[in-house]
Amino acid sequence: METIKNYLESMFASMPNTPEVRKAKAELLQMMEDKYNELISEGTSENAAVGTVISEFGNLDELAESLGLTKEVEVARGMETEMPRRFISLDEAKAYLSNRNKKALFRALGILLCIISVSFVIILGPKGVEVLSGVGLMILSIAIGIGFLVYSGFTDHEWTFIGHEYCSIDMNTAAYVKEKQRSFEPIRALCVSLGIVLCIVCWTPNILIPSDTSLLAPGSCSL
């Protein structure tokens, strides 16, 4: 049955991801599944059943015609004059996602540097030698942090159209993005919980390390 599903996926890979196409895919899968199950229950081997189901499936051209995709293409053309739909290929989607990663990294680093900037003053004290004084390091840290933030703001300049243009992706790309999302989910959950835990326990250094003045207490910071 897995082979049949994969076959159907590949047949639909280049189709537009619209409700009609999704419905057609589901209906066709159901018919194929029914046929497969019946063949299996009649004692046909799995390979032979898969072969029969696939050979009796039909072809893509007929499918496009049957789904009224010709009509859909016309509608899409009509819409193009009013709101052009920009097609995003799999490669473009990959480039966009890796760019998003870079942007997020620089933004996080920028915020981190701004937050920890005060710790230089706390640890070294406001006074010191020239640039190496707490204040000097604090200003340096903020400057680099802001540099990172500004840079992260510019990295996705070529992708701004995604925010305000109608875009479309094919089924292949949709599947790729979904898979990425799914595989990242555990890491995301871990990061969010770690962040929350750090926020909750951030006051503990104040208790564990006895401090003479409140200024000297190195409070831990979290995202």
Partner: peptide, 17 residues
């Protein structure tokens, strides 16, 4: 005669329309 799945589904959508 064995009707293809795509033929069958195309007939459904067309006749429903």
């Amino acid at each position: 005669y064995v009707i293809k799945e795509t033929t069958l589904y195309s007939a459904f959508t067309r006749m429903e329309k």
